[in-house]
Simulated assay, not measured.
Amino acid sequence: MNMSDYTELMGELLELGVNANPAFPFTACILDSSGQILITACNACHISPLYTAEGLALHLLASEFDCQQKQSLTLITTSEPDDLSLMAIYWARCRGIHIDEIIYGISRTELKKIWPADPSQGLDVNLKRFPEEFSSSISIHGLVLADECFDAFEEGKAMFDRGDDPVRSMDIDQYWMTGDWLIDDWEEEVE
Results as ranks from 00 to 15, higher is better:
2 N>W: 06
3 M>S: 11
5 D>E: 15
8 E>Y: 09
9 L>R: 13
13 L>M: 11
14 L>E: 04
15 E>V: 07
16 L>E: 12
18 V>H: 01
18 V>T: 12
19 N>H: 13
19 N>K: 15
24 F>G: 02
27 T>L: 07
28 A>T: 09
29 C>F: 05
31 L>F: 11
33 S>Q: 13
37 I>T: 11
38 L>Y: 09
40 T>Y: 08
43 N>F: 05
49 P>I: 06
55 G>P: 03
55 G>H: 00
57 A>Q: 00
57 A>N: 02
58 L>Y: 03
59 H>S: 08
68 Q>N: 05
70 K>H: 11
73 L>K: 06
74 T>S: 12
75 L>Y: 02
76 I>A: 04
78 T>I: 06
80 E>V: 04
81 P>I: 05
82 D>C: 14
84 L>C: 03
87 M>E: 14
88 A>S: 11
89 I>D: 00
91 W>C: 04
91 W>K: 11
92 A>T: 06
97 I>R: 02
101 E>H: 14
101 E>Y: 00
102 I>Q: 00
103 I>W: 00
104 Y>T: 07
107 S>M: 10
110 E>D: 14
112 K>I: 02
113 K>S: 02
113 K>P: 01
115 W>K: 01
116 P>F: 06
117 A>V: 04
117 A>S: 13
118 D>T: 01
121 Q>K: 12
121 Q>W: 01
122 G>P: 13
122 G>M: 05
123 L>D: 00
125 V>S: 12
128 K>Y: 01
128 K>V: 04
129 R>E: 10
129 R>W: 07
135 S>H: 09
136 S>R: 14
137 S>V: 06
139 S>A: 12
140 I>K: 00
140 I>C: 03
141 H>T: 15
144 V>P: 00
146 A>M: 06
148 E>W: 03
150 F>L: 12
151 D>C: 08
152 A>R: 04
152 A>N: 07
157 K>C: 07
160 F>H: 11
160 F>V: 05
163 G>W: 12
164 D>Q: 14
164 D>P: 01
170 M>Y: 04
171 D>R: 13
172 I>S: 06
172 I>D: 06
172 I>G: 05
174 Q>V: 10
178 T>G: 07
179 G>N: 11
180 D>K: 09
182 L>T: 14
182 L>R: 15
183 I>R: 14
183 I>K: 15
184 D>K: 15
184 D>C: 10
185 D>M: 13
186 W>Q: 14
188 E>W: 08
190 V>S: 11
